[in-house]
């Protein structure tokens, strides 16, 4: 399997001029295609910061990041936005769907930004919503969907641009156990059948139990990197 994400010596220091807070202290990490990875650790250990940097949402203070063979630390602002759009799928804790769009339109939205033709967008969005089991909810707006259903739409949206990998920041934090189970089943299926790479930051033991690889962070450093039970 070829590597999808490679980081070398990543550090992130907040407020470097006053009281510096070292969120990451030299993270070296390689994630390969098709992995199902959980990044775990206590609050403040640097999980979200690492995910943000891998996802190109934040820039490291030092270090090198390669996503899909491309050094993203040197990309311009617009290039980085386009890179995120085309290569990375995001699933957020709070779902973050666009409230005024239907489920179908939410999934189509990223493809719209990619300027895909309407029929292609529509077809793929329907396929993805089918894959997450929401065929009957395509015309519903987020407010008309349960938390679990919204998160499944968010997964479909994350996959819409055919990304190199999906980053999910505490995706089950707001879900009940049934919804969490359904969501994890969907993601595990996508991982198994389409070799889609998933990287989670999580506290949720149910997610950790399904992960193939568990990376533990503490005080901004990787303290363990081991195979999971999933």
């Amino acid at each position: 399997m070829k590597p999808v994400i490679v980081t070398k010596g990543i550090t992130k220091t907040y407020q470097p001029d006053t009281i510096p807070v070292h969120a990451l202290r030299g993270v070296d990490l390689t994630i390969k295609e098709g992995e199902f990875v959980a990044i775990v650790g206590p609050s403040g250990s640097g999980k979200t910061t690492l995910l943000n940097i891998i996802g190109g949402l934040d820039r490291p203070s030092e270090g090198y990041i390669e996503v899909g063979g491309k050094d993203i630390s040197a990309l311009s602002d617009n290039a980085l936005i386009d890179f995120r759009r085309d290569n990375i799928g995001f699933v957020f804790q709070a779902y973050n769907l666009i409230p005024v769009l239907t489920a179908l339109e939410n999934v189509e939205f990223v493809m719209l930004l990619q300027k895909l033709p309407k029929d292609q967008r529509h077809k793929r969005a329907l396929e993805l919503l089918h894959a997450v089991g929401l065929d009957d909810k395509i015309s519903k707006r987020p407010i008309e969907l349960s938390g679990g259903q919204q998160q499944r739409v968010a997964v479909a949206r994350a996959l819409a641009s055919k990304p190199a990998f999906v980053l999910a920041d505490e995706p089950t934090a707001n879900l009940d156990s049934v919804s969490t189970g359904q969501l994890l089943d969907i993601m595990a299926n996508l991982n198994r059948e389409e070799q889609m790479t998933f990287v989670f930051s999580t506290h949720d033991q149910r997610v950790i139990d399904r992960a193939h690889r568990i990376i533990t962070l503490e005080d901004g450093k990787i303290i363990s990197d081991q195979l999971g039970h999933g």
Partner: peptide, 9 residues
């Protein structure tokens, strides 16, 4: 969020 998922400024 919109910036994150790839909407240009």
């Amino acid at each position: 969020v919109l910036l994150s998922i790839g909407m240009r400024r």
